[in-house]
Computed example of a mutant assay.
Amino acid sequence: MASIDTDPDITVGYSRLSPNAVWCFFDEIDDVPNLTAAEEQGEAWEALLDGDRIGTAVVGTVGTSFLSRIIITPNARRMSVATAIFDRLQDVYWCLRCRVHKDNQAGIRLVESTGFHRKRKGRYGELWWYDTQLNNVDDK
């Protein structure tokens, strides 16, 4: 089994890519659904390792900031890239929301380990909503 570097020198910043190039990055990853029109209006962030793009996130900024998409390249998964992205975004946005499918245990562990608090279930109970501010928690 190959060893996994869990503390690489990852830098996260606002994306230098054009909007079209950001969406192309998502298209290159096989297990990522297409972006919605609303997501295409969001702010793009990227994670770099030695100048190579290894992750991207999209944050919608209408109303409360909402992390709508995060993707890590397959060869960079399990290297704390998502944690680095979450940490950087929480430094920038005073409140950040996201949602995770109720069966996505890895996603739930990730958001809960990076300072997000469970707020409520989605309309049909399939999603959990999270945000970075601790108030109005509803586990119903």
Rank of each mutant, 00 (worst) to 15 (best):
A2V: 15
A2M: 14
S3T: 15
I4L: 15
D5Y: 07
D5V: 14
T6L: 14
D7Y: 10
P8L: 10
D9P: 06
T11F: 08
T11H: 06
G13H: 13
Y14G: 01
R16N: 14
R16S: 13
L17Y: 13
L17V: 08
L17G: 02
P19D: 10
N20M: 11
A21S: 13
A21W: 11
D27Y: 11
D27W: 10
D27E: 15
D27G: 10
E28F: 07
D30A: 13
V32G: 03
V32P: 01
P33Q: 07
N34C: 11
A37G: 07
A37M: 13
A38H: 11
E40L: 14
E40A: 08
E40G: 14
G42I: 04
E43H: 13
A47I: 02
A47E: 01
L48R: 12
L49F: 10
L49G: 00
G51R: 05
D52N: 08
I54E: 02
I54M: 00
G55P: 03
A57Q: 07
A57D: 06
V58S: 02
V59F: 03
V59T: 02
G63I: 09
F66E: 08
L67K: 00
L67T: 05
I70E: 02
I71Q: 04
N75H: 15
N75E: 15
M79W: 05
M79Y: 02
S80Y: 10
S80T: 10
V81K: 00
A84E: 01
A84W: 01
A84H: 07
F86A: 05
R88D: 06
R88M: 10
Q90I: 05
Q90Y: 05
Q90F: 06
W94R: 12
C95H: 08
C95Q: 14
L96K: 00
R97F: 06
R99V: 01
V100A: 01
V100Y: 01
H101G: 01
K102E: 11
D103M: 06
D103C: 05
D103V: 07
D103E: 13
N104D: 08
Q105L: 13
Q105D: 09
A106K: 08
G107C: 02
R109T: 12
R109N: 11
V111C: 03
E112I: 04
S113L: 03
S113D: 10
S113M: 06
T114V: 10
F116S: 02
F116G: 01
H117L: 00
R118P: 04
R120K: 07
R120P: 00
K121L: 14
G122Q: 04
G122A: 03
R123S: 08
R123I: 13
R123Q: 08
E126M: 05
Y130S: 02
D131M: 03
T132M: 03
L134A: 09
L134S: 07
N136V: 08
D138A: 08
K140W: 13
K140M: 09
